[in-house]
Design a protein around this nucleic acid. Sequence first.
RNA 1: GGCGACGUGGCGGAGUGGCUACGCAGCGGUCUGCAAAACCGUUUACACGAGUUCGAUUCUCGUCGUCGCCUCCA
Length: 465
Amino acid sequence: MLKLYNSYSNSLEEVELNKKQVKIYLCGPTVQSSPHLGHGRSAVVFDFLVRYLKYLEYKVIFVRNITDIDDKIIEKSFEENISYAELGTRVSKEFHNAYEELNCIDPDKEPKATEFIDHIIKYIKKLIENKFAYVTKSGVYYEISKFDDYLLLSGRTKDDVVSGTRVEIEEDKKNPEDFALWKFSQEDEPYWESPWGNGRPGWHIECSSMIEAILGKTIDIHCGGNDLIFPHHENEIAQSKGAYPNEKFVNYWLHNGMLNLSGKKMSKSEGNIKLLNDYINEFDGQVVRFFFLKSQYRSPQEFSLDLLKESESTLNNLIEFTKGVNPEPKNEKVLSIFEESMNEDLNTAKMLGDLFKLINEADALEEQKLKDLKSTIKFVFNVLGFELIKKDTNRKTKDELIEFFNEYDIKFGDIDQAVNEFINIRESLRKKKDFNSADKMRESILDIGISIEDGTYSGWSWKTS
RNA sequence: GGCGACGUGGCGGAGUGGCUACGCAGCGGUCUGCAAAACCGUUUACACGAGUUCGAUUCUCGUCGUCGCCUCCA
């Protein structure tokens, strides 16, 4: 039985979902600057969720939005002297590239705020009709005091929020804590026409509106980073309940933990951001993905280069262990470890530990059982979006390879042939006990990412690293 | 200040009222011309103080510390 931690009830709940249709919405990025590792974590951990639900044979409808208009985007586009749309398109591409490298499955729908302006306007109209919103000289605002259940998600009191309010207080707001649904545009700012004046949507309204437009009034699971709990998700609830007071908005709220750098949250405001693409390029999307697997999704997770290297080692060891078998669900123990761990609020860290316990006992197994163990581990990792295949991270060009092998009078045809000839030359040196030269060759071929391992019984083997 | 989370071995990170997770790194060994890989072995941690208990890292209270949110954030 799948249990998930629901932020709304602050407790682990046995989830009840309809096999035929599970509606999931994940708050995606504001496309204002390049994706960082925190964005990666959110995308990957909820990708684990979606993949696991599919494994359990739920029919999932997965929506992840793109916020392509907001204050920051406008500000940034002014700085760069390009349009908000140009900036948004460019950054969206970077996000898509990163998602692909991380092997996150594409959402069924990926709505953009600017594509739903009409619907957003209708939504705001409804809120005004329902007396939850009012119009001023600067925009349209949601009136918090009209919504009794405000702050049930974050567990605050309204007094806390008022005292902590740090946003510039608009003169014409009824209460400082009221938030904008529609902001009238200033000079030069992009705008859309509305019944109240030219402007743009506020940050929170797009999610309520797009969820309704695409998934309907009630969804099963709403995900996002835990830094969105307040105010973003709190305001989404206020909007959705304001528009449809008698409908349940979200059944399960899931929030992932933040990524820390030396104990501090990685965030735009802290300025301690590590860009996703840097690490995807240096390592491999799968290594970064595996890094996220090593921690339970709600825990804060510590990031450092060394920890990423550690992930690479661990992943490579798993790849070595499962080498030469096809992914198949054969070993019951592995499958039960997988399901029991995932059922406990997607405890991927526990799963990994328990699987390694089995691997450590594997030497005692007879051949077929060992093979089944490997197959099943490979299968389970496939379900979670890993290939367990060594990726060729060697970025040498063909010309560089030709040049390298030329040094040893080897004509480069393909890599296997060239390496074989290389090894043969080296073997003859070893036979002549010219170990100095042989060791030099072994050393030099590391430059093109190949390590040669001499074995007593099997002669030698080579593998790319 | 308010609300919340957390403090586990060198680092990371699960978990449990009693059965020394696990990973990575390190160290020793087998093997090897050497190295690597592989395999074997190895370093017995749960902030501190008190309480409950036959027994607490796990429950309760207190202390100290760290972190998050308090309308920018995945």
